[in-house]
C-alpha cells in the first residue's frame, strides 16, 4: 500500500511542488537579504537570522516575494474586491480571457478554412503551405505593438486589436494541424470511399472531418495557450488600461513585485484552466464519436 502511494505520480508531483515551495522561501530570504542587511546597518538595528527571515518574508516591495505574500495578495484582489472594481484580478482576468477566446475563435475559424482549402486545391497546397510552415519560425509576437498602436490610431481599441493578435498567433498551428488531420485517412479508406462513388464533399464530411478531430484538438490545446500569451502581450503597449498584461506593466513601473507575481500566477492558472477545458472537450467529443479513449 505504502509502496503504491510512493510510486503514484500524484505523490511525486506533490513532493516536487513542496520542494519547489521550500526552495522558493529560501530563495526569497537569500535574494532579499542584501537589501535588508543594508537597511539594518544604515539604521543600526540589532538583527539576527530569524529577524532577517521574518522581515524578508514580509517586505512591502520585496525583490522576491514569499509564496504566502502572493497568496494573500491574490486573495485580497480576487475575493475582497468587487468583481467590477479595477483592483480586482477577476475583472482583469475577464478582460484578458474575453479577448483570448474571441481571438481563438477567429483564428480557429480562419485556420480550419485555410486547411480545407489547402487539402482540396493543389495550387494552394504548393504555394501557401510552405509559407505557413515558415511562419512558425518567425517571432510573430513582435507585430503585437504595431497592431495595437496602428489600429488605435484609427480609433479601434479595446477587445478587437488584442483578439486579432491572438487570432493570428493561433491561426498557424491550427492550419497546420488541420492539414495533417484532413490528410490522415489511409489510402485504403479513401479508395473505399471511391468504390462507393462518394463525391469530394461526402469524402470530406464522412471521412476526412472525423479523422481530423484528434489533430484538431491537439492544435487547439497548443493554440489556446499561445492565444492567452498573445492577449497578455497585446495589453502591454498603448497605455495598458486593463487586463493581466496591464497589471504586469503597471507592476513593473511602480516596483510592485507582489502584484506582478500574483498577475503571473493568475495568468498561469487561467492557462491551465483553458488547456484543461480543451482536454475535457476533447475527451467528451471523442467519447461521443465512439473512440476508445
Amino acid at each position: 500500500m505504502i509502496n503504491r502511494i510512493l510510486n503514484s505520480s500524484f505523490f511525486s508531483i506533490l513532493t516536487v511542488l513542496i520542494f519547489l515551495t521550500v526552495f522558493w522561501y529560501g530563495a526569497s530570504v537569500h535574494l532579499n537579504s542584501d537589501v535588508l542587511i543594508d537597511k539594518y546597518e544604515r539604521k543600526k538595528v540589532e538583527w539576527d537570522f530569524s529577524k532577517l527571515v521574518n522581515d524578508s518574508w514580509s517586505m512591502k516591495r520585496p525583490i522576491m516575494p514569499a509564496p504566502h505574500q502572493i497568496f494573500f495578495d491574490m486573495k485580497k484582489s480576487i475575493f475582497d474586491q468587487k468583481i467590477t472594481s479595477k483592483r480586482s484580478l477577476v475583472y482583469h482576468s475577464w478582460v484578458t480571457i474575453s479577448s483570448t477566446l474571441v481571438g481563438f475563435a477567429m483564428g480557429s475559424f480562419l485556420g480550419i478554412l485555410l486547411a480545407v482549402g489547402i487539402v482540396h486545391v493543389p495550387t494552394l497546397n504548393k504555394s501557401v503551405l510552405p509559407w505557413i510552415i515558415a511562419s512558425q519560425t518567425i517571432p510573430i509576437l513582435a507585430l503585437a505593438p504595431m497592431i495595437i498602436v496602428v489600429l488605435g490610431a484609427f480609433g479601434i481599441t479595446g477587445l478587437l486589436p488584442k483578439a486579432i493578435i491572438s487570432a493570428y498567433l493561433c491561426f498557424f498551428p491550427i492550419a497546420i494541424g488541420m492539414v495533417k488531420g484532413l490528410r490522415s485517412p489511409d489510402l485504403m479508406h479513401l479508395d473505399l470511399m471511391k468504390t462507393y462513388n462518394a463525391t469530394k464533399t461526402q469524402i470530406f464530411w464522412k471521412l476526412r472531418r472525423p479523422a481530423s478531430v484528434p489533430f484538431l484538438f491537439a492544435s487547439f490545446k497548443v493554440s489556446i495557450a499561445i492565444s492567452l500569451v498573445g492577449a497578455i502581450v497585446g495589453e502591454l503597449p498603448a497605455g495598458a488600461r486593463a487586463g493581466l498584461g496591464a497589471r504586469l506593466l503597471t507592476g513593473s513601473y511602480y516596483g510592485q513585485t507582489v502584484q506582478i507575481w500574483s498577475a503571473l500566477l493568475v495568468a498561469s492558472l487561467l492557462a491551465g484552466m483553458l488547456v484543461f477545458l480543451m482536454t475535457f472537450l476533447e475527451s467528451s467529443v471523442k467519447k461521443r464519436m465512439g473512440s476508445e479513449i
Partner: peptide, 20 residues
C-alpha cells in the same frame, strides 16, 4: 514528478516573468 509539471509549464505564459 517533473514531466507533468514540465508539460504544464509549456502552456504557461512564461514571457510574463519578463518584468521580474
Amino acid at each position: 514528478g517533473l514531466l507533468p509539471l514540465g508539460n504544464l509549464a509549456s502552456a504557461l505564459p512564461i514571457v510574463g516573468v519578463a518584468p521580474i
